[in-house]
Design a protein around this nucleic acid. Structure first.
Lengths: 361, 361
DNA sequence: ACGTCTGCTGCAATCGATTGCAGCCGTTAT
DNA sequence: ATAACGGCTGCAATCGATTGCAGCAGACGT
């Protein structure tokens, strides 16, 4: 009767009964084979197989004080960059027998805090998070770390002390874009910077600007636009830029989400890339090579970002003694040159307002 | 000393001590407020807050015989369609206080079986799976369902009895593509069908072909190519088609992954779309409107697919009495007309082999 | 032949939250 | 005044796997 309520529930004890041993022995046969006579072990495995036994991870984790689980908090799995990070995490996790709990914070600090709490409740072995700006979360993260939870940040830095971060060399990546444009002769630039309150945005802007300045070229702040990191944000920013007189000859877009919006604006404005405007953007995507013209981009190693973060957590769990010390891992970026930039025209007297020719269908 | 090992671990008992009650009362204050005096409850909540208490979900789930968790098995989170499904699942789950465990099967039946087992071990409340072909998995799924685990299939059908499936109206979607092309006057067609051993591929092909036949047009099987559901697969299939003489005037590509490969082949072959070839593909993507020309596609409600599947599981858990009966939910598709098709030329004497002009950069 | 050691197994406590049952106290009806 | 009742709380068992400790058998040495 009692058994009937959960027909599928097979416990170690059931396996033990069938194999004629005690539950302890079953446990040992499964987790520490060397402690059990081969013959006994064989009988137990056979019984387990016959009954379709699967160990109850909840009970195991409860006893072991920690589950083989990694919590992943990202802003939005629909953004290909995040999906790649997630894949990297999941691959490494599953390779080591860990499960991945996926949480979409939607860039909302309150959701992020809630998830942090939820994951703690699940006794996860570690948390990988892409932190939003905000001191409340930073403090929460610090508290978690102090209480012994392993936390690794990806893509951004919250500023919390004692946390390891894995991210791209945003400075270097943006600088390589700047250098490339400079080498083509460009001297006037616009930047669609996106959300500069998060570290990645800040770093990319600083990298781009710094590289220019090292070459004695200054970036006019009126041509640097902040906006939400979304296609819509990019679209609006681009529209605003294109509506102004004296458009610079080159544009740097700080991520691919915004870039897709920029392309829409480009199309609507009837601008010719790279004829009238050279463009480089951060992030490689499936479609960067498919659009017209193929885009020159700064590629991040998104998969490796996630993979590395997960590896740090798993390794710190395996050798459980050593307390992880915090550090920052930077993964290099790579400039992929395609066809969205061309040499700056020697010296147009002064940049004429872009012509208003009708959209080229 | 013992306490010192896990400094962050606060238990109900600790909260109870601080509030001057027993652990049972703490439990009730948290989960069944009406059973506790308001004043007591207030003291308990205060103590919990002060100590930073978070309930141990593992212990709770162990006792309750089931966790508020949904397992999601998909082939690859990098495919935008799957990411959207995942987002739909995660959104609904988190709305109801469920966590989502993400598993990438990589389309590998053995991985899929392994994950099924892992998820059972986690005592998940339900499993959402995108099943690969194969009888072994079908049987495993049937066994799971018999043993009381809630399983919902998305996007595809494994054939397992007793399972609810949520998928797109592939037949209707493909038919709408066919009808549209027919209405433009096309009479000769090629299809890049992808993997026709999985139900979605099979259904789309059947829908396309069926629609043609109802109009008295037949589909020449030599112009129907199977291939892996990947960009590379689409690329190779397209190359093969383009190398043959007598290319039909319209092409149907059965998903977006393959479509991105097809575009590459189109570019390399120097084909003009829609001038020399009209194209429709299944799946809406971020980039469908960005490429040249913007693609006419059959859009699926991917997010809703995941959302609906998760809802079925959550609802069946809430009213735990009722055993879910299996059913099939079909979500409609929508044809989005852009610019990748044009009217068929009245009557070219006979389709000339495509010209081999050099690649237009 | 006896003691000792090694290797395997079982017993029982444990992880933290939940819940049936019983006890306690104050209130109300008779 | 006493009985009955209802509301709130605590006790202790429970979920399933793990593990320190002890027991037991067989091997080996002397």
């Amino acid at each position: 009767m009692k058994r009937g309520t959960q027909p599928g529930m097979v416990r170690q004890e059931d396996v033990a009964a069938r194999a004629g041993v005690s539950a302890s022995t079953v446990s040992r046969a499964l987790t520490r084979p060397e402690m059990v006579t081969p013959e006994t072990r064989r009988r137990i495995l056979e019984a387990a197989e016959a009954l379709g036994y699967a160990p109850n991870q909840l009970a195991r984790s409860l006893r072991k004080q920690g589950s083989r689980t990694i919590g992943l908090i990202i802003s939005d799995i629909l953004v290909p960059f995040h999906a790649e990070v997630a894949k990297g995490v999941e691959d490494l996790a599953s390779e080591h027998g860990f499960a991945t709990i996926l949480c979409n914070s939607g860039e909302d600090p309150r959701e992020e805090m809630r998830y942090l709490e939820v994951l703690r409740g699940f006794q996860v072995g570690g948390i990988i998070i892409e932190p939003t700006r905000g001191t409340a979360q930073r403090q929460r993260i610090e508290a978690l770390v102090r209480s012994g939870t392993r936390v690794v940040e990806v893509d951004r830095i919250s500023g919390a002390r004692g946390v390891t971060s894995v991210l791209s060399d945003n400075l270097g990546g943006a600088a390589s874009a700047a250098e490339y444009l400079l080498s083509l002769g460009h001297r006037s630039f616009a930047v669609i910077a996106g959300d500069t309150s998060i570290t990645s945005g800040k770093e990319r802007l600083a990298g781009f600007q710094g590289s220019l300045e090292r070459q004695g070229v200054s970036l006019d702040p009126r041509w640097v636009l902040s906006c939400p990191n979304t296609p819509e944000g990019g679209y609006r920013a681009a529209r605003e830029l294109f509506a102004r007189p004296g458009l610079p000859s080159a544009l740097f877009v700080q991520n691919a989400q915004m870039m897709s919006g920029v392309l829409r604006a480009v199309r609507e404005a009837g601008l010719e890339i790279p004829l009238e405007l050279s463009v480089v953007c951060f992030d490689e995507t499936q479609w960067a090579a498919l659009v017209n013209p193929p885009l020159t981009v700064v590629a991040q190693q998104a998969y490796e970002l996630g993979h590395t973060a997960a590896k740090i957590i798993v390794e710190s769990m395996e050798r459980r003694g050593a307390r992880q010390k915090s550090r920052v891992v930077r993964l290099p970026t790579r400039l992929i040159v395609r066809e969205s930039c061309r040499e700056a025209q020697p010296s147009r007297p002064d940049a004429p307002a872009i012509s208003g020719h009708s959209r080229a269908r």
